[in-house]
Simulated scan of single mutants.
Amino acid sequence: MGSLFSNTISLRKSVQISDDEFVQLRDFIYEKSGIFVDIKRKYLFESRFSKRLSALGLSSFGDYVKFLKYDSNKAQELNKLFELVTTNETSFWRDTKQLESFRDHVLKEKIEEQRKAGKLELNIWSAGCSSGEEPYTLSILLHEVLRMELAKWRINITAVDLSPAMIERAQKGVYGEYAFKTTPEEIKNRYFTKDPGGWKIKPAVGKLIKFQQMNLNDRMSLKRVPRSHIVFCRNVIIYFDQDMKQRVVGSFYDNLLPDGYLMLGHSETLHKVSKTFKPIYHPGTIAYKKEG
């Protein structure tokens, strides 16, 4: 998911938001997405949402909350709201040390387990995939590890995000130079082709991935995700309050197959969130294992 709200303040005049209006909008966002926004970020509401209010011809945040609740276009506006709430700061090969450790330990362990069991299949869930860099990176890792053997495997990467706009961008698979700031040059040249819009992911990489819009606060939707060997949810749960964290992590636990792994962002932890996973320490990362 990346950062919640940008720290960049627009030069345009912001619509002022009262404490009461902030609470109304904050509670609505929490109800719909599970994302909790602290009142210290109130000024960011003003900078981020003012342009949207102007486009809708609304003069106050109170009117905007009413629009979100009662207008005939509220469903479409909810998607716009999700775009404004999430910044989606991401890139390919993000947190390189973690990815390398994941590849050398967790991924290779799972691949070996599946080989021994005679089941050449692997399901990975990328929860909070933003504009697609994470699931495409995972697909590339699988291509690198399995190479010619990949054709024998059934691999499914389910990539979900709250924002329909991010899913649309991910499906297009075209990225500017900024997305490759931590990507090895040989990887970029091997798995992307030059495109008028930047660099386009090769079809073989995208073939392993199914993108879909999904709200991690929607329990019924989460239950439709195929049972996973590995769940990636990096830089997402830090934006949830304790109750939401526990619910989402509980859903990941239920989704994971026995001995499956949950991978969080390097600054995230399950401490005080869940005792049902066993932390496995590797150089550069912690993998949370569902035992049994």
Rank of each mutant, 00 (worst) to 15 (best):
D104M: 10
D104G: 08
D104E: 15
H105P: 03
H105C: 05
H105T: 14
H105E: 07
H105Q: 05
H105I: 04
V106I: 15
V106S: 06
V106T: 15
V106H: 01
V106A: 03
V106Y: 00
V106R: 03
L107F: 00
L107S: 05
E109D: 15
E109K: 06
E109L: 02
E109C: 01
K110R: 12
K110L: 07
K110F: 00
I111P: 01
I111W: 00
I111N: 01
I111F: 01
I111R: 00
I111S: 00
E112M: 11
E112F: 09
E112V: 10
E112S: 08
E112P: 00
E112Q: 13
E113V: 00
E113G: 01
E113N: 11
E113A: 02
E113F: 04
E113M: 08
Q114Y: 02
Q114I: 03
Q114T: 02
Q114H: 15
R115K: 15
R115M: 03
R115Q: 05
R115T: 09
K116D: 08
K116E: 14
K116A: 14
K116S: 13
A117G: 00
A117T: 01
A117E: 04
A117S: 07
G118H: 01
G118N: 02
G118V: 10
G118P: 03
G118R: 01
G118A: 08
K119Y: 09
K119V: 14
K119F: 10
K119P: 05
K119I: 11
L120N: 06
L120I: 01
L120Q: 07
L120H: 03
L120V: 00
E121S: 15
E121W: 04
E121K: 12
L122F: 02
L122V: 08
L122A: 04
L122G: 06
L122W: 01
L122C: 12
N123Q: 12
N123W: 01
N123I: 14
I124F: 12
I124A: 08
I124H: 12
I124E: 09
W125T: 12
W125C: 06
W125R: 08
S126A: 14
S126D: 09
S126M: 09
S126H: 08
S126V: 03
S126K: 13
A127H: 07
A127R: 10
A127G: 11
A127S: 14
G128Q: 09
G128P: 10
C129H: 07
C129D: 13
C129M: 13
C129W: 04
C129Y: 06
S130I: 12
S130H: 04
S131W: 08
S131A: 15
S131M: 14
S131C: 14
G132D: 11
G132Q: 12
G132S: 11
G132C: 13
G132M: 13
G132A: 14
G132L: 13
G132K: 06
E133S: 05
E133C: 13
E133H: 10
E133I: 06
E133A: 10
E134Y: 01
E134I: 02
E134L: 05
P135M: 07
P135K: 07
P135A: 10
P135S: 09
P135Q: 11
P135C: 06
P135T: 06
P135H: 08
Y136M: 07
Y136N: 09
Y136T: 03
Y136R: 04
Y136I: 02
Y136D: 10
